[in-house]
């Protein structure tokens, strides 16, 4: 297979601080341009929040990072997404391997209709895990702060869990295969405030090891959780573009761009 360059961990990575980077990225759905000329760097082991009004391409941006956009038949991508020194959209790169390394958590909890145990174990199994599954399941559930809740009912259906627990299970499922980056698409939007708080705490803890990219429409959440923030908007043709990007504190207290200031102070949509 030709996807080898991505796996060569031994090679030194030039820009050590950058986990993944979009360069002049354009995304189209059919003839509609959803993203226009985006240059975005995601810092390693940090939480980067993507904010902006609805319809500005936040989710599209996120899904470009692990080639999930390809599952939409009419979708077309131009430009580059550099990961481990390689453009993941190169014809030689295997999307399966990309997704193995860049995990994702979705807006609504979507556990498999299997047991809690199987939800965690399945990803590891298909990816060729050869260790102790029991240990891996326990460790992943502990990392997702779910172990204490479910330790006695691992064989029960995951669908029986509450929404917040299901979402933490999805996080546990994603980290069970040890991705380098975890993409989160409004992970708390379907949850109540208490469950949301738990997810946020979890992200801060896990950020010591993983790189997070989080799409959120909730500015408070972005301000609370993230280290870096990228602000997107859409132009007259409804194509999304990146307005500015920077450390969260700077962006929220001292935005460089007028449009950002309007948005975060609520003067805009």
């Amino acid at each position: 297979m030709t996807g080898s360059a991505v796996c060569q961990t031994s090679r030194p990575i030039p820009d050590a601080g950058c986990a993944i980077e979009a360069r002049s990225l354009h995304v189209y759905y059919g003839i509609f341009r959803a993203l226009k000329d985006v240059d975005l760097q995601i810092e390693r082991q940090k939480i980067t929040a993507i904010i902006g009004p609805s319809g500005c391409g936040k989710s599209t941006m996120l899904r470009s990072f692990n080639r999930m956009n390809e599952l939409v038949p009419s979708c077309r991508t131009e430009g580059k997404v550099m990961f481990r020194n390689r453009n993941i959209y190169d014809s030689g790169v295997d999307p399966v391997e990309v997704r193995r390394r860049i995990g994702m958590v979705f807006q609504r909890p979507n556990p498999f209709p299997k047991s809690i145990y199987e939800n965690i174990a399945w990803g590891a199994r298909i990816n060729g895990y050869r260790g102790h599954l029991d240990e891996l399941v326990e460790e992943s559930l502990r990392l997702a702060a779910l172990w204490e809740d479910v330790r006695d009912k691992l064989q029960q259906s995951a669908l029986a869990l509450s929404g917040g627990q299901q979402q933490r299970l999805c996080i546990a499922r994603a980290i069970a295969i040890r991705p380098e980056i975890i993409l989160m698409d409004e992970p708390a939007s379907a949850l109540d405030p208490i469950a949301t708080l738990k997810i946020e705490e979890l992200m801060r803890e896990l950020a010591e090891r993983y790189t997070f990219v989080v799409v959120t429409h909730n500015m408070q959440q972005a301000a609370r959780v993230s280290h870096q923030t990228a602000f997107f908007m859409m132009d007259a043709d409804r194509a999304g573009y990146l307005v500015e990007q920077g450390p969260t504190r700077d962006l929220f207290t001292n935005p460089r761009d007028r449009r950002t200031e309007d948005y975060i102070t609520g003067r805009f949509g």
């Binding site: 692990n66 599952l71 997704r99 994702m104 498999f112 990803g123 298909i126 999805c170 499922r173 994603a174």
Partner: peptide, 20 residues
Amino acid sequence: SLREASYALGATRLETAVQV
């Protein structure tokens, strides 16, 4: 969403179809 969850874990199309 179930298929997406599977793909996001790095599953192939066959694995998604048959195992999920």
